[in-house]
């Protein structure tokens, strides 16, 4: 385990550099980043100025090296709109984003796990069929659409909850439901499958034969074994969840990182976009490693080599 973790951590710097490389070349896809910064109707001398200011007159390998060194120091340049370093602007917004992400994660586990367990134990029942159909639909529905529909129902029609902004718990309800719907559907489906797979196995029969109560069999034996695929799915869904968070924040004007990135795209504020993509990638990397560790902790059969 220690060895595996060490090797996994050793890969991180490499992947971080590759992520930065992708970010670097993304901006250069357009041919001339300076033209992006100043806009279409800039004078030639302005263009030249910007090019010099951004260091775009240097050869490409030099630009690349500079970019890497700066980025690793957390310097993605000045935000064009706020005229301040880009990264801190984004980091300021983290707590609000995390709040939304955690709320929807908790919400979807609270909904998804019980639904999945009950559906598996009452397989074929009306409840099972209704909830699995709902879960299939929930996985197919675009995040932004769920958001809009919730706004129509709860803000426009019923006037129960605010449609945008943040600050109170009422503001948190609709965004976290929106973001959680997809995830809850996934968790429900995978929990159901995982439990159905664990049910007919030998250790379950043994546990029952020992005379353990049904509840104890379920929690100590079935749930523990079913946890592994569920955690895998959770880990695999994190990137989608973060992508969804960007959209959700935009729909509900939630003042988090995702909203900042979208606004920066409209404003052509590239330093913000770049540092946003970078910070999100780091987050995904970190969750992936956390999932691996959790894995090994839960299942002693897993040996990483």
């Amino acid at each position: 385990m220690g060895k595996f973790l060490a090797r996994r951590l050793l890969q991180v710097p490499l992947i971080v550099v590759l992520v930065l490389t992708i970010i670097f070349f993304t901006l250069r896809l357009s041919g001339d980043p300076a033209a992006l910064y100043v806009g279409q109707d800039a004078r030639a001398e302005d263009l030249a100025n910007v090019r010099r200011m951004l260091g775009l007159d240097a050869p490409l390998p030099v630009q690349y090296a500079r970019f890497l060194v700066n980025a690793l120091r957390g310097n993605f340049g000045q935000s064009l709109r706020y005229n301040e370093p880009a990264l801190p602007i984004l980091l300021e917004r983290w707590p609000v984003s995390i709040q939304l992400a955690v709320a929807s994660l908790v919400l979807s586990l609270l909904i998804g796990l019980p639904v999945g367990i009950v559906s598996a134990l009452r397989r074929g029942s009306l409840l099972d069929r209704v909830s699995m159909t709902a879960a299939m639909l929930g996985q197919g529905a675009p995040v932004f659409w769920i958001g809009v529909v919730l706004i129509v129902i709860f803000s426009v029609r019923l006037r129960w909850l605010p449609a945008s902004g943040s600050g109170t718990w009422q503001h948190l309800v609709l965004p976290s439901l929106t973001l959680g719907a997809f995830f809850a559907s996934r968790v429900a489906r995978f929990t159901r499958t995982a439990i159905l797979e664990a049910l007919p196995q030998d250790f379950v029969r043994t546990a029952r034969a020992k005379g353990l109560s049904e509840a104890r069999v379920l929690w100590a034996h079935i749930a523990k074994n079913a946890a592994i695929p569920v955690i895998t799915v959770t880990g695999l869904t994190i990137p989608a969840l973060i992508g969804g968070a960007v959209i959700t924040e935009s729909v509900f004007s939630w003042p988090g990182v995702g909203n900042a990135i979208i606004a920066a795209v409209y404003n052509r504020d590239y330093p913000i976009v770049q540092s946003g993509v970078f910070v999100i990638s780091l987050l995904v990397l970190a969750t992936n490693i956390a999932v691996d560790v959790l894995y090994a902790a839960l299942d002693p059969r897993i040996r990483f080599d």
Binding site: L29, P239, I242, V273, Q274, V277, S281, V284, L285
Partner: peptide
Amino acid sequence: DAQLSMPFLVLAISVVAVL
């Protein structure tokens, strides 16, 4: 691996921002 650590949608957004 590096690309997978950038959520698909976020990557797409950042490229659209440029192109």
